[in-house]
Design a protein around this nucleic acid. Sequence first.
DNA 1: TGAATATTGTCAGATTCTTCACAAATAAGA
DNA 2: TCTTATTTGTGAAGAATCTGACAATATTCA
Lengths: 207, 207
Amino acid sequence: MGEISKATLRRYPVYLKALRKLSDEGIRKIMSAELSQYVDIKPTTIRRDFSLIGQLGKQGYGYDVDELISIFARELGEDYDEKMILIGVGRLGTAILNYNNWNHVAGEIVCAFDIIPEKRNKEPKVNVPVYHISQLKEKMPKGCEIAILCIPSGAQEIVNQLHDLGVKGIVNFTREHFVLPEGMMKRDVDVVSTIQELVFEVNSMSR
Amino acid sequence: MGEISKATLRRYPVYLKALRKLSDEGIRKIMSAELSQYVDIKPTTIRRDFSLIGQLGKQGYGYDVDELISIFARELGEDYDEKMILIGVGRLGTAILNYNNWNHVAGEIVCAFDIIPEKRNKEPKVNVPVYHISQLKEKMPKGCEIAILCIPSGAQEIVNQLHDLGVKGIVNFTREHFVLPEGMMKRDVDVVSTIQELVFEVNSMSR
DNA sequence: TGAATATTGTCAGATTCTTCACAAATAAGA
DNA sequence: TCTTATTTGTGAAGAATCTGACAATATTCA
């Protein structure tokens, strides 16, 4: 597989999501022009993005929806069955653990860590074992490369530990700033920043 | 104010976040090179981004942290005190409503809508009035331009209604796909897609 | 089977975004 | 006050990304 640009990478989950909906609606085949209206991405961009994975379509016909879904699902890691951990079982952490149409879509949250595991384990809504954060090293699942960070503070310290334990990717819900160690990557999920961007854009639009 | 690119726009909240932390640590002045290490964005990019707002720095000196914060806060809409609504008071919706270091950072969530408002209003954690979704039109706050969408399905219908009521921006937590009406903008906050991207990137890194 | 039609895959040009390099301007020290 | 050391702001080069155009190829229908 050739080099896939960051921009393209960000669009793959968008395609997958749209294709799943189309499939649910009983649609079996689709053309780039049609899909374009659906996802708001130009047909040419779609075709180029797809072509980076392989020859997925048939000229004069289009793409087979279910075939695309299974290819994207595989490419996006659904078949890796990635083992993940979650750190910080507060309100947001709990919401994520409970998020249901989730399991095995991108992997599985194996266990969680918190500073008050006794309390967290008593909450009926938390459906994976919660260990004390000091047990990070001993309880870390084998081959775990992804950690979801939902703690209010002290991120840097934890991130450094995770790095030493072989974690490669962080999904960051923390609003705190931290320096990313060499070789790690992260994705920020920041509701406040997202809203700020949007407010800014909406306001500059109407000026 | 000149045209500010989308890429730059996405970085403004990052700067603001970092600057707030620096200010908390008692740091009064900063140079682009220093800030760069902090936010992992090249100094030149920082300077260019800043220069689009105005002449914020002093040559041979740097930038005044608190001055930058107040400028960014204003530019990012904190002073707009944007009125927002939230739709879908499930687990995630509740987590967002409760998210505390939130209020007046990008505006205020005035009220929420759900299909079972009676139940939601009884939950002690929900701190704004919850109305039935059918009352959207009558209960919509004046001048509300931003809606936060946390419903599991039926997004398209709601989005169309919001559009008719003058909403310009959607913060979308829905995994469902919908077509964005003309003149609206949205930002997706999708944990699953985010993880998928990350898994994909981590895996293609090690291959 | 063959011609007409449709749609992909891809090259090259256009656009957007990033970064280098340096002049302009300020601060600090003698 | 004058000189030196800094650091910003920005024009222009460079990189990444997007998109128009069209050849290549499959499908469909006579």
